[in-house]
Design a binder for these strands. Structure first.
Length: 568
RNA sequence: CGGGAUGUAGCGCAGUUUGGUAGCGCAUCUGGUUUGGGACCAGAGGGCCGCAGGUUCAAAUCCUGUCAUCCCGACCA
């Protein structure tokens, strides 16, 4: 491609709306343009990279035995009504009506549709197992779109669904997807981590997320360098920390703590440590109220609590007026003693002695409180979030934490959708059984952003060869000097003839402009044709390396071909 | 959905406090000089100052409403 013909509107300045590197660079390099919040157009360079990601995903899915199909993005409401998700999705589903006032939506995900397709199309158990996938635009009306295409309202997703006769079959399908995903993310040049994820409300039996570690990631990861354990922060199991042993249990005593609503204020007021307290938080779980207790220096993990309580709909903090009603005190003085709702205590709370809690009376706390003596929780379980100072639940070494961008998720669904929609089969004994499903997603557009997030410097993008919009670039330094222009065009034609996707910067620009654009759009390798071209000498430079090397034309051309073939 | 901020030329911004002809840099166009890391000189084009009301002789500026965008948090099936 000659750059004089390329639609590549690069920006010199950073658009004010973009905060993170990938978003800024995608806009500056002319990959995308915003149409509305969370909605983007892909310009030629962006689309080329996007298609390369799709192609890698497609090849590996096909290799794993999955079959591609394509469903509409515009969907009738019926299927979602059968599974109940027409309501469950709520405001995050884009809903619309046709001219006859019938309900439609823009598909946010396609479990129901794939299930229905299999119900409609599969006649015999002998056709299973089967894995189907599509690469399709998805629509979710996110409460808060952000970070460019990392959390957008329209995005490209590969979604796959496996259909098996039994659990053992599901395990195999799942494993195949797992290894396909590993190959995909390796080929995309992503440094990724696989973490255990929560399957909670979806009711599945297992779930893992593929995370690209990045400070701008929206998900927390707990991981252990020593044994390789890694889990989503929400999921990571917490090992109760031993407390200094204390002799005996004292008598509970009420103390005056004026205006000390928070642990921080209490620590200061009573000159104690945060771990001497247990905090009690009132939650509304569906339509019931419950109390949850963790040590003062810990955080409640709402996902764990939700799973423990068996809350199907929503778990949220109780409204302040209900807290006042239930505790007879201002918010900040809740405690388990005399509280008339179920109390769920964290394992660590059960190990504490003579600790301090709210007294259910404004400006009052109890000290020297002991579990099972002064109050009794309905359940003691792991309901806190892992944090600094915690240990790995597998090997006991200190746990580390990082932020990650979720680029893939694999999930053993079980029978949630096959039950809801009636996907059954008659086995060889003529017995009716339910098909067991798995679902597997990859955020294709998000992968692009993640790759840029991990591969950039102050000058621009540093594309991995596998997904670079173009693999190589030839730059004549001075477009007024025919000798350079000719030589550059020859090199360009030779590379093209070898199947290299190459750009020729034939624009009548100064050298600096061409170099800046080349770095910005991140082409992995370039040949610069300059002063020494009369002697047959040109410069070879890889984007990732800081120095250019002088070579003969033949060497440079061969090295580019070699570099591309070794890295693609 | 709660909190915060911002809407002025394609992009980045000033001007708003104290009302009085719409500004700067980059980009664009023309002419010339340049040509190895975003050139220089001279000239030119481009704005319902987010939108709608109101106050005023006069509104980018003051008041009310509204929409949009971004950030923090909640949510993310």
């Amino acid at each position: 491609m000659k750059m004089s013909n390329l639609f590549m509107p690069t920006l010199r300045e950073v658009p004010a709306e973009a905060e993170i590197a990938s978003h800024q660079l995608m806009l500056r390099a002319g990959l995308i343009r915003k149409l509305a919040s969370g909605i983007y157009s892909y310009l030629p360079l962006g689309l080329r990279s996007l298609k390369k990601v799709e192609q890698i995903v497609r090849e590996e899915m096909d290799n794993a035995g999955a079959q591609e199909l394509l469903m509409s993005a515009l969907l009738p409401s019926e299927a979602y009504q059968a599974s109940g998700r027409w309501e469950v999705f709520g405001p995050s589903m884009f809903k619309l009506k046709d001219r006859n006032d019938r309900d439609f939506c823009l598909g946010p995900t396609h479990e129901e549709l794939f299930t229905q397709a299999v119900i409609d199309g599969v006649r015999s158990y002998k056709e299973y197992p089967m894995t189907l996938y599509q690469i399709q635009h998805k629509y979710r009306d996110e409460g808060r779109p952000r970070f460019g295409v990392i959390r957008s309202r329209e995005f490209v997703m590969k979604d796959a669904y496996s259909f098996d006769l039994d659990e053992k079959g599901l395990d195999e399908s799942y494993k195949k997807m797992y290894s396909a995903y590993c190959r995909i993310f390796e080929r995309l040049g992503l440094d990724f981590t696989i973490v255990d994820a929560d399957s909670g409300a979806m009711g599945g039996s297992g779930s893992q997320e593929f995370m690209v570690k990045s400070p701008v990631g929206e998900d927390g990861i707990a991981y252990c360098d020593a044994c390789g354990y890694a889990a989503n922060y929400e999921k990571a199991e917490c090992i109760p920390q031993e407390m200094p042993s204390v002799e005996g249990e004292f008598e509970m005593e009420k103390i005056h703590t004026p205006n000390a609503h928070t642990i921080e204020e209490l620590v200061k007021f009573l000159n104690a440590e945060a771990y001497n307290f247990a905090k009690t938080i009132i939650y509304k779980a569906d339509d019931k109220y419950i109390a949850a207790m963790v040590r003062g220096d810990r955080e409640i993990n709402e996902v764990k609590l939700k799973n423990l309580v068996g809350c199907t709909d929503d778990l949220e903090l109780a409204e302040p007026f209900m807290v006042r009603q239930l505790t007879n005190a201002e918010v900040g003085f809740a405690g388990p003693v005399g509280l008339d709702i179920p109390v769920y205590a964290d394992k660590e709370v059960a190990m504490m002695k003579n600790f301090i809690i709210g007294a259910n009376e404004t400006d009052m706390h109890y000290k020297n409180v002991n579990i099972n003596k002064d109050f009794t929780p309905v359940t003691v379980a792991d309901i806190r979030t892992i944090g600094e100072g915690d240990v790995c639940p597998k090997c006991g070494k200190p746990i580390k934490s990082a932020q990650g961008i979720e680029v893939g998720h694999i999930f053993k669904l079980g029978t949630k959708y096959s039950d809801a929609l009636g996907l059954k089969y008659l086995d060889e004994d003529g017995k009716s059984k339910t098909v067991i499903m798995g679902c597997y997603g990859i955020g294709v557009t998000r992968c692009l952003a993640a790759a840029i997030e991990q591969n950039n410097d102050k000058d621009g993008i540093i594309w991995p060869v596998s997904i670079a919009p173009y693999q190589a670039m030839v730059i004549p330094v001075n477009s007024k000097i025919d000798e350079q222009v000719q030589a550059a065009e020859d090199i360009y034609n030779r590379l093209k003839a070898q199947g290299i996707e190459v750009l020729l910067d034939d624009r009548n620009e100064r050298a600096g402009v061409k170099f800046k654009d080349a770095d910005l759009i991140g082409v992995p390798v370039r040949i610069v044709v300059g002063k020494k071209c009369g002697e047959g000498i040109v410069e070879y430079k890889e984007r990732r390396s800081s120095e250019a090397v002088e070579k003969t034309v033949d060497e440079a051309v061969n090295d580019v071909i070699k570099f591309i073939n070794e890295n693609k």
